[in-house]
Computed example of a mutant assay.
Amino acid sequence: MDNPSKIIEGGVEFSLGKFDGKNVLYDFDKILIYLNAKGKLLFGKHFKIYDEDTEIIRQLCYYFIKDKTNCEQAGIDPEKGVLLSGPVGCGKTSLMKLLKYLVPLQRPYMLAPCRNIVFGFNHLGYKIIEDYGDSSPICFDDLGVEPMGRHYGKDCNVMGEVLLSRYELYLQTKSKIKTHATTNLNAEELEERYGNRVRSRMRELFNLIAFDKNTNDKRK
């Protein structure tokens, strides 16, 4: 791939900005055109990027393209992961699925629904916590609404344990391996769900990027 400012999707070439031989000088309007087109390919013709969401998308783009100046202005630390919060149906999961395509040279993260991780724990036990605490980049989808885990009669706050493992990994790898998450919950609700210790680790692990709580449900 000679020019990282260009991406080909469905036989169409999209420009994300200009490449000066070393760096891509990104153009946000061009990025939006690409994301709209890629979103339609991924999720179907009904997909669209809403004007009301462009500010959130702009922050996410700064993060993923590692635009240090704009990240600093927005209070985003490129070394941490992203915790994308917002009401049900505002498009968090779609955006996290979509944005990794913006930077094809970065190691992609997989999306893992938290309830599936808990179901896995119920069958396989603590091996699941080890598996998800490992060295793959990951985005935990729908954090905080998963059920409590139960294996051989013992209850376990599975995602709380997984987050503690990911925090240890973050410290060991100096943030080379990213952990992301989406959630419908606010900070107080997350603390109630996982306790103060996990919540304080989450502050170190994630940049919080939040939709307005009145954002429309796009699935209606």
Rank of each mutant, 00 (worst) to 15 (best):
V118N: 03
T215N: 05
G160H: 01
V103W: 04
A210L: 00
R193D: 01
S165D: 11
N70Y: 06
R166A: 01
N3T: 00
G120L: 12
K154V: 15
R107M: 13
T215A: 15
Y50P: 00
V88T: 15
N157P: 06
T54A: 01
L111F: 03
R219S: 00
D51N: 14
L25E: 14
T173R: 04
M1I: 10
F43Q: 10
I33A: 10
F43K: 11
G91Q: 06
K40T: 12
K220N: 13
L171R: 15
Y170H: 13
E146Q: 07
T179Y: 03
L111C: 09
R201Q: 04
V82W: 03
G91L: 10
G133I: 05
K127A: 12
G195D: 00
R219V: 08
I65L: 07
K100F: 09
G21M: 01
K22Q: 09
I209S: 04
R115P: 03
Q172G: 08
F119W: 08
Q172S: 13
L163V: 07
T182D: 06
R166L: 09
E191A: 04
L35K: 04
Y126I: 15
E79C: 08
K66P: 02
Y126H: 12
L164W: 00
E72W: 05
I8Y: 01
E52K: 12
V118T: 11
P87G: 12
H46D: 15
Q106G: 03
S136G: 12
P147M: 09
D27A: 05
I57V: 13
I138N: 07
E130T: 14
R150D: 11
I129K: 03
Y170A: 10
L16I: 01
R58C: 10
S85T: 15
F140V: 04
P147Y: 04
I8M: 09
R197M: 01
V158Y: 00
N23H: 10
D20S: 02
H46T: 14
Y26Q: 09
G21A: 02
K100T: 15
L185Q: 07
K48I: 06
Y50F: 12
R193E: 14
K218P: 06
F19N: 07
K220A: 14
G125Q: 13
K174G: 13
K80W: 11
G17H: 07
I117D: 08
M96S: 08
H180F: 15
L95R: 07
Q172W: 03
S85L: 11
K30Y: 10
V103M: 14
D142F: 01
L171Q: 15
L205S: 06
G195T: 08
I57T: 02
R107K: 15
L185V: 11
V12N: 10
N186E: 06
L84A: 02
F14T: 03
D131R: 14
I49F: 01
N23K: 10
H46N: 14
A112I: 09
F206M: 06
K68T: 14
D51L: 09
R197N: 02
L99A: 10
R150C: 13
K48L: 08
N214C: 06
L190C: 03
T69L: 13
C139H: 04
K45N: 10
A181F: 00
V103H: 05
L111R: 05
L35S: 07
P108A: 14
T215I: 03
